[in-house]
Design a protein around this nucleic acid. Structure first.
Lengths: 195, 195
DNA sequence: CGGTACTTTCACAAATTTGTGAAGTTAAGG
DNA sequence: CCTTAACTTCACAAATTTGTGAAAGTACCG
């Protein structure tokens, strides 16, 4: 853990400001170590909340990249994980609609992209999850008997989730308005492939 | 559901523990197998959503019990798990405020209880979780630079969670109203100790 | 004070999950 | 076609998690 110490300045560290802040395609004062610290810290929170480790790390790496998109190789290098691990993580994230895959026409490599205007929609849109919960609960009410105390308790739980599902849709609608207000409607442009 | 006047069940519960009797408090039409099927099915959903197995099973067992409360022995017997497993699960659930522990004055055994009006408040009230996420994100904005594309993306994520936190409070307020409308204000009485 | 009835803690074996190297697959460019 | 770059799948070793029996701890009751 201690590790790092003073040491190993990456070539990046050499890059002083003297090199004119202009050609900053690759981010100006981007300290890889700071980025890594954030990635690991936020990913840990996601893991604690139930997400698998690799998907959490890959996702956070994408989230904290300037372009919002990285190749498999970049992800592997930054996170120090094998291509296999990247592949697995990315498959999971795609299934959850948290990242999308892009094929670059000229190249053989894929890019994985997080759309900042879509990823938490995917998270809150855990429609499928809620629906499965509700199915299980409905069945429970039947099996326990709607007129028993237990059945009533389950029915109330079911009603709560049904209520929740409706509320979430409205809530996201409100968020979109507030988001536009805070950041502007065109904010999402950063997340699109470069034009 | 109002109390018409036939408080028969109250006497039933008062049954003193005689030697031979196991907890034969099961309701009449209650098929243990059906109960078990529901418990396992719903618990699986919770596991899939990130909850540990034993807490999920214990919690669902409590949720689908008629009184909303069970002793360690009852839980162990129904779920076929050791006292140690019950202990661990219950500790977790208490920390999450999903069940509460009661000490019966006359007896040496604890009862664990789910309050149907409180457990999903605990779930939606993942205040602590949200706060930790927000902390990590705030730090990320700083480290990445608020004026970088990445920093802006993280800032937007942060804003979303802050928004969410505020919305949830109002949402639960609305739910309480709706719940009263659907089930009556006194619905929660089943979940309280008999007095 | 014990005696006793529970509950909790702890070390550990079993089961599960995780991430890797290597082989396999696909498709872009010659 | 063949080469080659990139991605995916697979078997497995390592690491982690899980649940248990047994010992230890607690607190009620006489």
């Amino acid at each position: 853990m201690t590790t790092d110490g003073a040491n190993v300045s990456e070539r990046n560290a050499d890059r002083t400001r003297s090199t004119a802040g202009t050609a900053t395609e690759t981010a100006p004062g981007r300290d890889p170590e700071a980025v890594s610290r954030f990635v690991e810290r936020f990913a840990s929170q996601l893991v604690e909340a139930g997400m698998q480790r690799m998907p959490a790390r890959v996702f956070t790496a994408l989230l904290s990249s300037d372009t919002g998109a990285m190749t498999s190789a970049e992800l592997g290098e930054q996170l120090r994980i094998s291509p296999a691990a990247v592949s697995g993580a990315v498959r999971y994230l795609s299934q959850q609609h948290m990242v999308s895959r892009e094929r670059e026409p000229g190249s053989r490599r894929d890019r994985y992209r997080v759309h900042s205007d879509q990823w938490y929609e995917a998270v809150t849109n855990r429609d499928a999850v809620l629906r499965r919960w509700e199915d299980a609960l409905r069945e429970g009410v039947q099996q326990l008997g709607a007129d028993t105390p237990a059945g009533r308790r389950i029915a109330e739980t079911l009603a709560f989730f049904e209520f929740l599902q409706g509320e979430i849709a409205q809530l996201m609608e409100r968020w979109r308005a507030r988001r536009a207000e805070l950041f502007g409607e065109d904010r999402a442009r950063d997340d699109r492939p470069k034009g």
